[in-house]
Design a protein around this nucleic acid. Structure first.
Lengths: 167, 167
DNA sequence: TTGGAATGTCAACAACACTGACATAAACTG
DNA sequence: CAGTTTATGTCAGTGTTGTTGACATTCCAA
């Protein structure tokens, strides 16, 4: 951590961390870290002509089996056309199954097949391995701070979706 | 690999924060937070038919005026053809100028024009405002942890690029 | 000086986001 | 029951951003 407010008199952490320079560093850290965050799954997905969109769908279907298309839509924050293209290929390839709702037959409930779960595990393992290494490097207190800042960076609706997933 | 260590007794933070569930929460936090992170600039860029790639180029040219295409390439981690398309439009629109290198005439050194700097400021202001709010919410210790984890999440070459920018 | 390496440009293509329009079926409302 | 809303899926078109391939220019070293 270089300068901060060097030479201007140190007023304690409560102010120091809000300089534009500090903010810019945070921005660049997010940019690079997100590349690292997606690098491993991206490599795996590229080999099977899937993309990040497929990964996201698979992740959240695994997370909430039986979720509806609409629900998934609001979590992913994409258009239904975009999601539909992805789901169509996943269903066609036998990774996801779509069941007509029993209560409401308009709804489609989404589940991973065994094959889908296998891919999910492969992708998750790669991503978790990196996350675990980063957590281990950084230590528990840093991890707590990491999560706190990330949550503060979300929009209200994302924060709601994020919280909901932890029920 | 679902649960991790759930229900096996609490052994203190030193172990607890590495459960699969904790890692998954971190993964999802990154996903949502990155959406928030890019949301404000994306909104501005959409109005002028630019995208995130333009933003990134502008950001790093502003950060290191006179940088070469090759240098920018290694920071952004895309192909030169991809970057070139973006640079072409930015140069065509008068936001960036490209000067042939004096020592090595193969190189092109990139600079923002006044107009380019104006857009950079607009985009940065939006992004910094969100960052500042998040930092303020989370507090200084959290910010320190945030940066530590992000850096640990990068690949070695990204970490090098990130460190270089802070010289 | 000649051949290879480095740097950058142009063209074509694929992935994935978007909008808009429309179809279908089921649920809800009066 | 008729009309409206909701949930989903599809088709067509467009834009950004990534890719590979081919090529021009410049530098440098044998």
């Amino acid at each position: 951590m270089p300068e901060g407010r060097t030479g201007q008199g140190y007023s304690g952490e409560s102010l120091l961390f809000l300089t534009d320079e500090q903010l810019r560093q945070g921005i660049e850290a997010m940019f690079f870290a997100y590349r690292g965050f997606t690098a491993d799954p991206d490599r795996i997905l590229a080999e099977m002509s899937y993309g990040r969109a497929h990964h996201r769908a698979i992740h959240f279907i695994n997370r909430s089996p039986g979720t509806t298309v609409n629900n998934l839509l609001s979590i992913l924050g994409v258009t239904k056309q975009s999601l539909n293209r992805v789901l169509r290929t996943l269903i066609g390839d036998g990774l996801v199954i779509s069941k007509v709702g029993e209560l409401d037959k308009r709804e489609r409930h989404l589940y991973l097949t065994d094959q889908g779960q296998a891919l999910e595990a492969t992708l998750s393992d790669a991503q978790r391995a990196r996350m675990r290494a980063a957590y281990k490097d950084a230590g528990p207190e840093a991890v707590q701070g990491f999560k706190t800042v990330l949550e503060a960076m979300m929009d209200a609706d994302m924060r709601r979706a994020y919280a909901k997933l932890r029920d």
